[in-house]
Each structure stands twice: as C-alpha cells, then as structure tokens.
Amino acid sequence: MKSAVIVFPGSNCDRDLAVAFEAATGSKPAMVWHRDTELPDDIDLIGVPGGFSYGDYLRSGAMAARSPVMQAVARAADRGAFVLGICNGFQVLTESGLLPGALLRNAGGHFVCRDVALTVENAQSAFTSRYAAGEAIRFPVAHHDGNYFADDATLDRLEGEGRVALRYAESVNGSARAIAGVLNEAGNVLGMMPHPERVIEPAHGSTDGQRLFAGLVEGLLARA
C-alpha cells in the first residue's frame, strides 16, 4: 500500500498526517515536495495536509492549488487513488477544482481553535465506513477560513448525492448547511476542515480519528 503526503512551503500538519498514515498502513508515506511533478507509481492514498501554504497569499490554498504537484494529484485522483485534504488541504482541493465550492473567512471573523462536535452524515464512503451514519464524534478544528460556500444548486446536489460526509453539530464557522466535509462525485476525494490526524492515540485525549484512516486502509485492501 503506497501513500504520500504533499508538502507545501507553509504546511504544518504534514508530519502529523504522515504519522497517522504510517500507523494505519504500516509503512511510511512518501513526503512529496510541491515542486515535484510526479507521484510514486500506483499511489493508493494521498494526503493534502493542513497549514498555511504560501502564507495564505491571495486566498487560502490558491497558490498551492496551482503548484506542479497538484497536476499529479489530479491525475492520481482520476485513476481512483484516495485523496484526503484536511483543513488547508481542503482549501487546496476546492481551489484546484477537485472539490466544488470554496472556503470563506469564518462568519464570526475569528480564528477557531477547539474541539467541535460533528455528525457523520454519510457512512458509506471509504473515508467514513468505520463510523455509523448519524454517529456523533469530536475532532479538533484550527482555522480562519473554514466557512464552506457553494451556490444552492451545488449544495442541493451534494446533499442529494450523499456527498456531505460530515456536518458540524454546533455553531463553528458559518458553513453553508453546517458542512464540515465533502466528497467528490466518485467518492475517492474527501476534503474536511476538522483534523482527524490529531485524535488517533489515547494520549491525544480521543481516538475518534483513528477509524477514518483504518477505514481507508480497509477500503484499499478490499480493492486489491
């Protein structure tokens, strides 16, 4: 099972995500620099980590989305590789067009950094298969631009197609329809603002995030 974590200048959750990938897959992910134009062949799982790529210049995720490596990520996603974008990674995926919508400044104007209550909306996806539909979980968030926006037609389509993977169960950032995580049409790309990689060991205070990674590995094994 081959995994990779993309590293942009200003990424700061890349190593945490690598630890989570290694714990779940049993092998170290390749750390791929943003200038690289290729990913390892037959890559199974790609993480686009949190942080402040390019200092959030222009718009959060805007510069990273146009970096060379994102072309390779898009090709891998087309082939069916799993792509998980967390926090800034979610912003990069929307900016690059791999996911619909955009992430605006939080409605309250404040940076939000705390654990939040979430509801698993779709437990059928590879990312959420180890959770129950409607299950209440808690993940930390740490973001300034997490206010999910899309036009009503897009939101209706996402809801109708079961592409809202996670929803906030409390007021967090003003996201349209309290959306915390969305899937692409094929279900192999997930973007989410909360940080599952920060709750994978008992010492973290919770292991709610562990099952997301375990479910992905299970999904990959089932494919093989």
């Binding site: 605006l104 400044r105 104007g109 206010n147 926006f149 003003g174």
Partner: peptide, 9 residues
C-alpha cells in the same frame, strides 16, 4: 450574497 466578515468588521 457572499458573506464578507472583513467588510462587516
């Protein structure tokens, strides 16, 4: 129609 928290502040 797009919320502008910066403008509001």
């Amino acid at each position: 129609g797009v919320l502008d928290p910066q403008g509001r502040a």
